[in-house]
Design a protein around this nucleic acid. Structure first.
Lengths: 205, 205
DNA sequence: CAACAATACGGAGCGCTGTTCCGTTAAGCA
DNA sequence: TGCTTAACGGAACAGCGCTCCGTATTGTTG
């Protein structure tokens, strides 16, 4: 599909358009980021638009859905997180240490962005952009770290089912929900415990 | 506060009131339960009211908030789950087996009630009735099972921090979010892994 | 330089929530 | 039989994500 056209036909330069120029997306993203810091990721689109000094129509023209705006705001950090995976694996003494460090990085990212972890679960009609983006970008990274750490521990005891990268990533995301503002709940501790359990394999009945 | 009046003054029997009799709550609860099974716990109050053949005002007079209605619907099952804790501990060969069995029970309860786990996180103004009820009723149970299982394993390696009953319960609840309808995500497996990790204590850095 | 066409803009409006409010209805009592 | 009182029903409110269309602003053209 989309067989990559051999040559761009005409209008090579994209400056050949008429009409009003598009507003710079960076301003919108900056406003959204600022509002997210103050009011959390669940802040109303109206508030973001007001902060940017812009109508809501403009927001929705640049980012067709609320989730895509969130994705755009955090894209850089997610990308950095994804790239940190292979690097940690190369730098760390053991694969398990790399996995644990990467997981800690991810948890810190989620916990500091209030409401992000909660927004991550694709509860809206099937293809939620937010859920999808995180999964596409981070599951491979999480999966390879997990596999490497498991290989390091030697052959598994039996052919018993084993936690896969997707489950682990989604589980970590879920564990981070409601972590900020609940001092009795230590998401990082639980996630590290989950990693321990995922590496050990389940023993008892 | 509310120093428990020594003696009930007059009106000993409660049948001395005038005005219309209250509708039987059981009908409302039955309707709500039926709607929850069909459309999940997030079903609109309007739908529940319509199913019960009742106005919305009636729903809200019996259950001041949506969360309290949910609590009422599931109170019996939560109670049963709480009572299963001590029983399992008495019946099981080991405390760890009891903990794992209880946790499996809780997970099955949450996963089969679509959206319940998601509604559990108290994201609304502070004192969410749903979150509070589950915590009050189940944290003690979860905590004693966890302590018993840990005691069984012998003295902990050091004074390092350890997962408490509240964290474990909330963690389990979070892990169950979005479990139904995602065949690649096995909540029960992850929860058992979390239990393993919580019992083992975190090893690596 | 003056029309014009093309495009982005702004925000009122829609459909959907949970929750509140008040006029209406029906049961007990005199 | 009428009156008092409580519960009922559902219209109305505020807040959400998102859509739609008249308006404003640009680059192009005669």
């Amino acid at each position: 599909m989309t067989p990559e056209p051999i040559e761009r036909p005409a209008e090579a330069e994209a400056t050949r358009r008429v009409g009003r120029p598009r507003r710079d997306q960076h301003e919108l993203l900056a406003a959204a980021a600022a509002v997210f810091v103050e009011h959390g990721v669940d802040a109303p689109v109206r508030v973001i638009a007001a902060r940017a000094g812009v109508g809501m129509g403009t927001i929705y023209r640049h980012f067709p859905t609320r989730a895509e705006l969130v994705v755009a705001v955090y894209r850089h950090q997610v990308e950095a997180c994804a790239e940190a995976g292979p690097r940690l694996l190369a730098e760390s003494a053991t694969a398990e240490a790399a996995l644990r460090a990467w997981v800690a990085l991810f948890v810190e990212f989620l916990v500091t962005k209030h409401g992000l972890a909660g927004a991550l679960r694709g509860d809206n009609a099937g293809s939620d952009a937010l859920h999808g983006y995180f999964v596409d970008r981070l599951v491979p990274v999480c999966g390879s770290l997990l596999d490497a750490a498991r290989a390091e521990r030697g052959p598994s005891s039996a052919g018993q089912p084993v936690v896969n990268g997707y489950s682990l990533l989604k589980g970590i995301g879920n564990l981070c929900i409601g972590a900020a503002g609940d001092s009795d709940y230590d998401a990082d501790q639980l996630v590290q415990a989950l990693v321990s359990g995922a590496l050990a394999g389940i023993s008892s009945t």
